[in-house]
Amino acid sequence: MSTSSPEKIAVVGGGSWATALVKILCEQPQVQIRWWLRSAEDIAHIRTYHHNPSYLSDVYLSPKKVKVCEKLRDAVKGADYVILAIPAAFVQEPMQELTSEHLRGKRLVSAIKGMVPDCNQLVTDWVERVFEVPLDDICVIAGPCHAEEVALEKQSYLTIASTGQSCAEDFARLITCRFVTANPLTDLYGVEYAAVMKNIVALACGITHGIGYGDNFQAVMVANAMQEIRRFVTAVDPRERDLSSSAYLGDLLVTAYSQFSRNRLFGNMIGRGYSVKAAQLEMKMIAEGYYAANSIHSMNKNHGVDMPITEAVYRILYQRAAPAQEMEALKKYLK
């Protein structure tokens, strides 16, 4: 793509990760951003005060770079890239405003680390199917990276994965800035499934911490979880990949251990005796691992992969199994 004229980026979503991505893109001199948010109050506040009052409120959003939009069609009109940064469980509703024609000729970027629950599809597969976007024009943003550290301008690393080499390379260049390094990768499905599953693992880590298990147990569980991820990803998309690299292992570790991990926080609340509904209400944020546990459990009915950690989390969340009993039973599977 030409570097002589500004790249036009549409960002869809108003949460912390969407806000962090807007901040990163504002670092680029040749970028113009149209940002769609659901909340009319947040839109009005951003126009007046140039920061998101609901998420990462200390981040300044340049009015010269960012235009907020009430209508999604206005945001994507004329865009070169459309970045989806809505929780997977809620991505379908706002996207109903669009047709395949609205996304024709655009590159689609998924910043969503989850699966569309109704169809148990990766977001990239769902976009390809529903909006007829060519797979080579779709990429995903993977970590290891938390929005809160982007807001603080701490050095961060991203992986941009696509089946199309040029798509991954072009967007990696676009999102690299003074405090973010982005690297391209062509393992779209491996990166995306690993990102989905690491949220389940982080949730499991939170549960064990809430019950009272220590760091020793958690380290063993995370090591076993990496093998669980390897088995599942190989079953659904067999190919050579180095799961010890940052796109896979790094993303798992930061989500499993970070104070900013909402999945770990959600799991911790479940381990301390909260019901799923009570934990969701108190967090006021979406833990993708909750929905991912059901989607991966459903998918695995066709693959039959040995996944004791994922299944334990599924039973706790969806069958109301006692967390302490499930973690006690899990001990015999860990090595």
Rank of each mutant, 00 (worst) to 15 (best):
E132L: 09
V22C: 03
I316F: 09
Y290T: 08
V130E: 15
Q218F: 09
E288C: 15
A312G: 12
G212S: 10
Q32V: 11
S100D: 08
V220R: 01
N268G: 08
R38T: 15
T234G: 14
P53E: 04
C26A: 12
R104V: 13
K71M: 07
F179V: 08
S2F: 11
V305F: 05
N183I: 15
V222K: 00
N224E: 07
M299K: 14
C177F: 05
Y333T: 10
Q325I: 07
S166V: 08
A194I: 11
P308R: 06
G210P: 01
E97I: 11
E27R: 12
V116I: 15
L37T: 00
L103P: 06
A223P: 09
D58W: 15
E153V: 11
T48H: 12
D170M: 09
S57T: 14
M1Q: 12
L281M: 07
S258I: 03
H50I: 15
K277A: 04
G13H: 01
K198S: 13
G210Q: 05
A292D: 05
T3C: 04
D215N: 15
V31G: 12
Q155S: 10
Q28P: 03
A168K: 00
R231H: 15
P29N: 13
D306E: 11
N263D: 07
L265F: 08
I296S: 02
C177P: 04
V127R: 01
P87E: 07
A142V: 07
E41D: 06
E70V: 04
A182E: 01
V59D: 01
L243G: 12
R107K: 13
I160V: 07
W36L: 00
D118W: 15
Q218N: 04
A85H: 03
V222Y: 00
C26P: 15
G214W: 02
A111T: 04
R38K: 14
K113G: 00
I160C: 04
T181F: 14
R230F: 15
R315I: 02
L103I: 05
R173Y: 12
Y274A: 06
F131M: 03
S162A: 02
R104Y: 10
P63T: 13
L249N: 11
S298R: 08
V236P: 01
I43D: 10
Q121P: 14
T181N: 13
E132Y: 12
I160R: 00
K106A: 11
W126T: 01
E128L: 09
K65G: 01
